[in-house]
Design a protein around this nucleic acid. Structure first.
Lengths: 208, 208
DNA sequence: GACGGGTTTCAAACATCGTTCGAATTCCGA
DNA sequence: TCGGAATTCGAACGATGTTTGAAACCCGTC
C-alpha cells in the first residue's frame, strides 16, 4: 500500500514547493523524507532527474486540465456561437498566471522543472513534456475559427507570443515591476491576465 | 601581463560557449584550461558562480551596446522627426534574436546565465544584472514619444511583452516549430524579427 | 505449510563536485 | 636587499548522484 514510487513522487512534489532552488532537493533529503534510502530513487526512476521530471509531469497534467476546463466553459457559454476571443486567451494563459501567484499551488514544481530543462543536461528526458502540445491544438481549433483570415502558422505564432508574454510574467516579476515603475501590481492575477488579454487579443483581430 | 582574473574570464566565456549544460563548466576544467589551480577561482571571484556571473556581465554589456547602437542609428535616420516604430522594436529585440541564432556569437553565455539565475540559488548575485534596466529607459523615451496616448506603465508593460516574445523565440525554438507545424523558419533571424515586429508594433499604435 | 525465484530495500563505496586552509612562492615598494 | 602583501598551490573536507552486491521481502507453486 502507498508503495515507494508514489510516495517518492508525493514527497518530491512537496519538497519542490518548499524549496527556493532545485539544488536543495537532494536525493538524500528525498529519501529521508520518504523513509527510504537514496538508492531507491535510482532504482525506481533511473535517476533523481527523472523523478523530478515525473513529478512535474503530474503537476503539468493538472494545469492543462484546468486550461481545458476553462476553454470548454468558454465554449459552452456561447455555443453554438464561437466563444469569446478574450475568454479563450484567458483560458490559455490564466492558469499559469494564477498558479504562479498562489502560494498554495504547486506552480513551483513547474518553475523548477523549467529551470532544469533549460540547463540542457539530458534533453531527451524533457522532450516529451516540452514538445507536448496536444492540448494546444484544442486552442488552435477555436482560434482558427475566430480568425479565419490567419493561416495555421500565424495562429501558432501568436499562441507562442501569448505564452511568451505569460512566461515573462511568471518568471520575471521583479523585472517587470521595475520596467513599469511599480505602477502595475504584478501580484494581482486578475489584473495581469486582463493586461495580457489586452495586448494579445488584437493579434487575432482582423486588421483594419 | 594577462593576469589570472582576466584569463579566467576569457576561458570561462569560451567554455560556456562550447558546452551544452552549465554543469559541464566545472571549476577544475576552468582551472586546467587557464593553467591555474581550482582554488584560484574562489580566490579571485569568491566562487565559481560569481565568475560565471562576471563573465555573463561582460557579454551582456556587449549585447546592450549593440542594442543602443541600433537604436541611435534608427533615431539618426529620421532626426529630428521621431524614429520609425518598427526600427525601435527591432533594435530592442533584434540583437538577442540574431545572437541566439549565430553559432559564432557569445549568446550561449547569456543563455546559461539565465538558466542559472532562475535556479534561484543566490538571488543577490544576479540582482545587479536582472534589475539593470537603465538601457531600457532609452527605449522608453522614444516609445513614449511615438505613443503619447500611453502612460508609462503601459509603455513599460508593452516592452515587457516584447521581451517576453523575444525570450520565447530564443528559448523554446523547437516548441515554436511544433506549434507552427514547421511553417515558420525559426532559424532565420530576419524573418523572426519581422514576425516579432509585426505583432508588437500594433501594441503601440493608436486604437481605432 | 515450506520452498524458491523475482522484486524490492539497504548499507557501503565510488567518482566528482565547489570550497577551504595553511604553507610555499612570487611580487613589489621601501 | 629586505620584508610584508598578494598570489598560487596542493591537499583535504563535506556533500552530491549513482552503482553494487548482499540482505530482506513478497507471493505463487509444489
Amino acid at each position: 500500500m502507498n508503495h515507494t514510487p508514489t510516495r517518492l513522487l508525493d514527497v518530491c512534489e512537496q519538497l519542490l514547493c518548499q524549496v527556493d532552488s532545485v539544488d536543495e532537493v537532494t536525493v538524500r533529503r528525498l529519501a529521508t523524507a520518504a523513509g527510504v534510502t537514496p538508492s531507491s530513487v535510482s532504482y525506481h526512476f533511473g535517476s533523481q532527474e527523472r523523478l523530478i521530471v515525473a513529478t512535474a509531469e503530474r503537476v503539468y497534467r493538472r494545469l492543462n486540465q484546468e486550461r481545458m476546463s476553462l476553454l470548454s466553459r468558454a465554449v459552452q457559454r456561447r455555443f453554438p456561437a464561437p466563444p469569446e476571443l478574450e475568454e479563450v486567451i484567458a483560458a490559455l494563459v490564466g492558469p499559469s498566471v494564477r498558479w504562479s501567484l498562489d502560494p498554495n499551488s504547486k506552480y513551483r514544481v513547474l518553475a523548477h522543472f523549467n529551470s532544469m530543462s533549460q540547463r540542457g543536461k539530458n534533453p531527451e528526458v524533457y522532450r516529451a513534456i516540452i514538445e507536448g502540445v496536444e492540448h494546444h491544438k484544442a486552442f488552435m481549433a477555436y482560434l482558427r475559427q475566430l480568425a479565419p483570415w490567419l493561416d495555421d502558422a500565424a495562429i501558432g505564432w501568436r499562441m507562442s507570443c501569448a505564452l511568451g508574454i505569460r512566461s515573462q510574467v511568471t518568471r520575471s516579476r521583479v523585472r517587470n515591476e521595475v520596467l513599469t515603475n511599480h505602477a502595475i501590481d504584478f501580484s494581482d492575477a486578475d489584473e495581469v491576465i486582463a493586461r495580457i488579454v489586452e495586448v494579445v487579443a488584437p493579434m487575432f483581430r482582423r486588421p483594419s
